[in-house]
Computed example of a mutant assay.
Amino acid sequence: MRSLIVLARLLDYPTLALQQAADEMRAVIEAESHLPWVRRQSLMQWIERIAESDLLDLQADYVALFDRGRATSLLLFEHVHGESRDRGQAMVDLLAQYRAAGFELDARELPDYLPLFLEYLSTRPEEVIAQQLGDIAHILARLTARLEEREADQALATATLLALIGAEDEITEHQKQVREEKRDDTPAALDAVWEEEAVRFSASSDQDCAVRSAAGQRRARQRQNEKERAEPVRIIDPATSVGRESHSH
């Protein structure tokens, strides 16, 4: 399902290559028969906004949305297991699932990173896609409610995933709870997390800690931004590739 690759790209860190692929992504969404026209139109309008926006502004907004606090994390198991040992085992199990399907990945992202998970699903039969999206529907619904609360376009992507399996109604169940939540991306909340992590720090070095964190990975990608600008985003038939140089199956 090529639309899953587009949604994965839309949820990933924005690059010039993403902007340059706007026409191709719009064509994929327009042809997606599993979605009603109104939803396809909303996604195509978002793609147009991405293409026309200043790239640095897009990147700054993305970092502010996903790298400050954990409420909007795109790491699926963080919403379920937090930092417990259960998360590690869940990662191992998911990685084994990828490999059993012939989907190999490098160390760039953790296995539960949502855009990566969507790339994997794009290679699976429709019944598997429906079952596995259903398994994370509660996470997607809570994430969508939080993104909507912050008026983020990325809510269109997560809501679309729920629409693909007819589970949009689950978003409503989480909206009231999200409105009552304390934001974890305020300066005070971020300071409290920093103090807690400083006490629990156990990485072998600052560099190791930075590489393991989502924010650290984002900063690493920013340092390679110029290189990425020269590489086109490819939206390719899932039967042959997921559209990323770093992943193959």
Rank of each mutant, 00 (worst) to 15 (best):
Gln59Arg: 15
Tyr62Leu: 14
Tyr62Arg: 13
Tyr62Trp: 15
Val63His: 07
Ala64Gly: 08
Ala64Val: 05
Leu65Cys: 15
Leu65Gln: 14
Phe66Asp: 09
Asp67Ile: 02
Asp67Ala: 13
Asp67Asn: 09
Asp67Arg: 04
Asp67Leu: 05
Asp67Glu: 13
Arg68Gly: 01
Arg68Thr: 09
Arg68Asn: 09
Arg68Glu: 10
Gly69Thr: 07
Gly69Asn: 06
Gly69Tyr: 01
Gly69Val: 05
Gly69Trp: 01
Arg70Gln: 11
Arg70Trp: 11
Arg70Ile: 12
Ala71Glu: 12
Ala71Arg: 08
Ala71Leu: 10
Ala71Trp: 04
Ala71Met: 11
Thr72Phe: 02
Thr72Cys: 15
Thr72Ile: 01
Ser73Gln: 03
Ser73Arg: 04
Ser73Thr: 15
Leu74Glu: 07
Leu74Pro: 07
Leu75Arg: 08
Leu76Gly: 05
Phe77Asn: 07
Phe77Val: 11
Glu78Trp: 12
Glu78Arg: 12
Glu78Gln: 14
His79Thr: 08
His79Lys: 05
His79Ser: 14
His79Cys: 12
His79Gly: 12
Val80Met: 08
His81Val: 07
Glu83Trp: 05
Ser84Val: 06
Arg85Glu: 10
Arg85Met: 04
Asp86Ile: 01
Asp86His: 13
Arg87Met: 08
Arg87Leu: 08
Gly88Val: 14
Gly88Trp: 13
Gln89His: 11
Gln89Tyr: 14
Ala90Val: 04
Ala90His: 05
Ala90Thr: 02
Met91Lys: 01
Met91Trp: 14
Met91Phe: 11
Val92Ala: 07
Val92His: 03
Asp93Phe: 10
Asp93Tyr: 11
Asp93Asn: 12
Asp93Trp: 12
Asp93Gln: 15
Asp93Leu: 15
Leu94Gln: 03
Leu94Arg: 01
Leu94Val: 05
Leu95Pro: 00
Leu95Asn: 02
Leu95Asp: 00
Leu95Cys: 06
Ala96Pro: 00
Ala96Thr: 03
Ala96Asn: 10
Gln97Val: 01
Tyr98Ile: 00
Tyr98Ala: 05
Arg99Phe: 02
Arg99Leu: 09
Arg99Asp: 06
Arg99Val: 03
Ala100Trp: 06
Ala100Ser: 06
Ala101Gly: 10
Gly102Asp: 13
Gly102Trp: 15
Phe103His: 02
Glu104Asn: 11
Glu104Arg: 08
Glu104Cys: 04
Asp106Lys: 05
Ala107Pro: 09
Ala107Asn: 13
Ala107Thr: 14
Ala107Gly: 11
Arg108Phe: 05
Arg108Cys: 04
Glu109Thr: 03
Leu110Gln: 13
Pro111Gly: 00
Pro111Glu: 02
Asp112Ala: 08
Asp112Cys: 03
Tyr113Leu: 06
Tyr113Gln: 04
Leu114Ile: 04
Leu114Asp: 10
Pro115Ser: 06
Phe117Lys: 01
Phe117Glu: 03
Phe117Thr: 05
